[in-house]
């Protein structure tokens, strides 16, 4: 089931073309379906690298529970405030992981969660700042046992 879904998604990505990501862990192409999910949640604003850290294990033993921490370098005051963080998986059956909304009462722009990864892949984090700018980080995770459909 998962193999069929992933194959179909890659086929769609192949037809529509891939959006290239710049930067270290993310010199990898983003499948078109993932790019569409990102556009829907984050918008069309150009994302800059830097000012955001995505912490995940290099190898996750169990893809059903992968610890992840996103830290946005922000004092959480006025224009510099981070208002939202979005997480996307590039090779899950569905790309959406979660969106986090950060209120003015937070001391830091830092969120820790546990996520599901069907297989080894690149994870993407986007942060929206109060001034409308968008930051992005990517990290590659190897997965020993896939977590989505088990």
């Amino acid at each position: 089931m998962s193999a069929i879904l992933i194959d179909r998604r890659l086929a769609i990505g192949g037809l529509l073309g891939f959006v290239a990501l710049s930067g270290a862990a993310a010199s990898e192409a983003i499948p078109a379906e993932v790019a569409a999910a990102i556009r829907e949640k984050v918008g069309a604003a150009e994302a800059s690298e830097g000012g955001i850290t995505l912490k995940v294990p290099e190898t996750a033993e169990n893809g059903a529970f992968v610890p992840v921490t996103v830290t946005v370098h922000s004092a959480m005051r006025s224009e510099d405030r981070c208002t939202a963080i979005h997480l996307f998986a590039t090779r899950n059956p569905t790309p959406g992981v979660a969106s986090y909304q950060l209120g003015a009462g937070l001391a830091r722009a830092e969120v820790s969660a546990r996520i599901r990864l069907a297989e080894g892949q690149v994870l993407l984090a986007y942060a929206r700042m109060a001034d409308g700018s968008v930051r992005r980080a990517a990290a590659r995770v190897a997965v020993s046992t896939g977590g989505c459909l088990t």
Partner: peptide, 18 residues
């Protein structure tokens, strides 16, 4: 703080914030 969970969030969803 709020979260919108989609399929990629684990069972027994855990969240930490400051």
């Amino acid at each position: 703080f709020a979260a919108d969970f989609r399929n990629g969030t684990s069972a027994n969803p855990y969240l930490a914030f400051i």
